[in-house]
């Protein structure tokens, strides 16, 4: 081990924490440093293994019950059960299901029977990782919005907004169709440095909304409604990066 960047900048790069200039510097460095390339590959393997292993442990029901009793009895007001009291949580579950349905449905027919427990959660992550394998991500692979947009025509009963944000650091990678809650939706794929962002788009009759965001098993999501379209961006990039993409898509 001689290149000191393997112990510093490489990690900021993997974690999407470098600013654009430093990330570009590191990418240039990668061209000439075999050691960093190997280290990067090793770290990405480790990252995938950790994600795949389903190590995240959710709060057991016994803990929820204890808290409910303790917080409930000491606050006099009748506290609704924790599980039902937070709209945020329901949204998190909805987003997870959205991910699960769109990715899991297609890839994991076995999931249809038992959508519960940590096995389910790790299967989602697994499915997400699989969708990032070559060949699974895009049905139409093009960085040209004028190729991607017409591709959706005739395949959907709505026209998803397709824009390339290459100058803003989110180059369009392509698009694909997916199935969410039994209906076909559009998915736009953007790159953010070495990471990928899936943006799910489907029509809605609900009014416009402020963005809601959250995290699930190390993946972040942000969802909002605008002009009759509901969108949900999911990725392992930082929440700040997702917020930036949301901002671009709102323009």
């Amino acid at each position: 081990m001689t290149c000191e960047l393997t112990q510093t900048v490489l990690h900021g790069y993997i974690d999407g924490e470098l600013d654009a200039a430093r990330a570009a510097d590191f990418e240039r460095h990668l061209i000439s440093c075999a050691e960093c390339v190997t280290a990067l590959e090793a770290q990405e393997t480790l990252h995938s293994s950790i994600q795949r292993a389903g190590l995240y442990e959710r709060a057991p029901a016994s803990l929820r019950q204890k808290l409910q009793t303790q917080l409930g009895t000491t606050t006099r007001s009748s506290v609704t059960p924790i599980r039902n009291s937070a709209p945020w949580r329901l949204l998190a579950i909805a987003a997870t299901l959205l991910l699960a349905v769109s990715l899991g449905w297609r890839l994991f027919p076995a999931l249809r029977g038992s959508p519960s427990g940590t096995d389910f959660a790790s299967a989602i992550v697994d499915a997400h990782l699989r969708s990032l394998q070559p060949g699974h991500l895009e049905d139409v692979q093009s960085t040209d919005q004028h190729t991607v947009k017409p591709w959706f025509d005739g395949k959907l009963d709505f026209a998803p907004p397709v824009h390339d944000f290459v100058n803003e650091g989110f180059p369009l990678q392509g698009g694909r169709l997916d199935v969410v809650r039994g209906r076909t939706v559009a998915v736009l794929v953007y790159a953010r440095r070495k990471h990928l962002v899936n943006v799910f788009v489907w029509p809605t009759t609900e009014p416009d909304s402020e963005p809601l965001s959250g995290s699930q098993l190390g993946y972040h999501w942000i969802t909002w409604r605008k002009s009759g379209m509901e969108m949900c961006a999911v990725s392992d990039v930082s929440p700040e990066d997702l917020a930036e993409l949301h901002h671009l898509l709102m323009q």
Binding site: A59, L63, L67, L71, S85, A86, W88, A92
Partner: peptide, 24 residues
């Protein structure tokens, strides 16, 4: 426990309780 007023109680449920999984 200190009694939170209903508004704070609702905020706690909305902002903090959803992170119980993360806490555990």
């Amino acid at each position: 426990l200190d009694v939170l007023d209903p508004q704070d109680q609702a905020r706690f449920e909305q902002l903090v309780l959803p992170h119980l999984d993360a806490a555990f």
